[in-house]
C-alpha cells in the first residue's frame, strides 16, 4: 500500500476555488469543475473540497453543486463546510460524497457518534485547526477566529473516541507557507490516536509530503503544492505521477 496524497481545494462564497495564506489573502485558482477534471486525468488518490466560509456565513450547502461536482469525481471525495448535524450530512452523502469533514461540529461527540453509526467511521473526518500561541498548540474554530484552550492531542483523542475515522490536522500558521509541515504537531497527534492522521498546512513540494509521512502522518494533504508552481506562485494544477510518488516514497522510506 501507498500513503495517500490529497489535494485540498478551497471554495469561496461564490464557489470559486481559492488558496489562502494563514487562512486569509485569498488567491483565485480556478473553476472547481475544471480543476476536478484535471485532477481526474492525473488520477489523484482522493480530493478534499472545503467550503471555507460556510460556517462563518451560516450558509447551507448547495446540494446541486455538490452533486454535480461529485459526479465528476472518479476518485474519493470528501467535503466539508457548515455541516453541523446528521440532517446536514445526509443529503451530502446522498449527493455522492464519500466522507464529510467536520470542523466545529467535530467537538460535538453526539453528532460525530450519530454520523459514524449511520455512515461508518470511515465516512467521518474531523478537521482540527491548530495555531501556536505562547509556545503551545491550541485548537481554533471559525476559520481560526475563535481560539480554544484545548490542545490538539486532547482534541484528537476526543474525536477518535466519538467515532471519527480520520483526523485532518491543519496547521493554520503554515497555511500557504510552503515550508513544510510542523514535525512536533504532526508526530504528537499521530502517536496519540489509532485512526489515520492527515497532515495539512505547510507543504510546498513533494519532499515536504514525504517528510509529513516520516513524521507519522498516514496521509498528506496540501492546497499550495498542487496549485502553485515556482516562487512567484503562478497557478498551475499539478499532481505527481504514480511512478514519481513510488520512487520518492521508496527513497525516503515512507512507503511500506
Amino acid at each position: 500500500m501507498r500513503p495517500r496524497i490529497i489535494p485540498v481545494l478551497l471554495l469561496d462564497s461564490r464557489k470559486r476555488l481559492v488558496k489562502t495564506r494563514r487562512f486569509s489573502e485569498e488567491v483565485y485558482i480556478g473553476d472547481p469543475f475544471n480543476v476536478v477534471r484535471i485532477l481526474n486525468e492525473k488520477e489523484v488518490d482522493e480530493i478534499c473540497v472545503l467550503d471555507i466560509n460556510a460556517s462563518v456565513e451560516e450558509r447551507r450547502s448547495d446540494l446541486g453543486f455538490i452533486a454535480e461536482l461529485a459526479s465528476e469525481c472518479f476518485m474519493p471525495l470528501s467535503y466539508g463546510g457548515g455541516i453541523k448535524s446528521v440532517a446536514d450530512a445526509a443529503p451530502i452523502f446522498a449527493a455522492g460524497v464519500e466522507k464529510v469533514v467536520l470542523g466545529r461540529a467535530s467537538s460535538d461527540s453526539v453528532t460525530v457518534r450519530a454520523l459514524a453509526d449511520s455512515y461508518g467511521s470511515q465516512a467521518v473526518a474531523a478537521c482540527i485547526d491548530c495555531r501556536r500561541v505562547d509556545n503551545h498548540w491550541r485548537v481554533a474554530f471559525d476559520r481560526g477566529r475563535t481560539l480554544t484552550n484545548t490542545d490538539p492531542v486532547t482534541q484528537a483523542i476526543a474525536v477518535e473516541q466519538a467515532g471519527a475515522g480520520e483526523i485532518i490536522l491543519q496547521n493554520i500558521d503554515r497555511d500557504g507557507a510552503q515550508n513544510g509541515y510542523d514535525a512536533g504537531l504532526v508526530s504528537s497527534v499521530s502517536e496519540a490516536v489509532t485512526v489515520p492522521v492527515v497532515a495539512l498546512g505547510g507543504a510546498g513540494d513533494l519532499s515536504h509530503l514525504a517528510e509529513g509521512l516520516r513524521m507519522g502522518a498516514s496521509a498528506v494533504a496540501s492546497g499550495s503544492a498542487f496549485v502553485f508552481i515556482g516562487r512567484l506562485r503562478a497557478v498551475l494544477i499539478t499532481y505527481p505521477s504514480s511512478q514519481d510518488v513510488n520512487e520518492l516514497f521508496k527513497k525516503s522510506g515512507a512507503a511500506s
Binding site: M1, Q122, V195, A219
Partner: peptide, 13 residues
C-alpha cells in the same frame, strides 16, 4: 510493527 492504522483508507495494488 507494521505501523498501520485501521481503518485502512487508501490505495493498494
Amino acid at each position: 510493527s507494521f505501523n498501520l492504522k485501521v481503518p485502512f483508507m487508501g490505495w493498494a495494488g
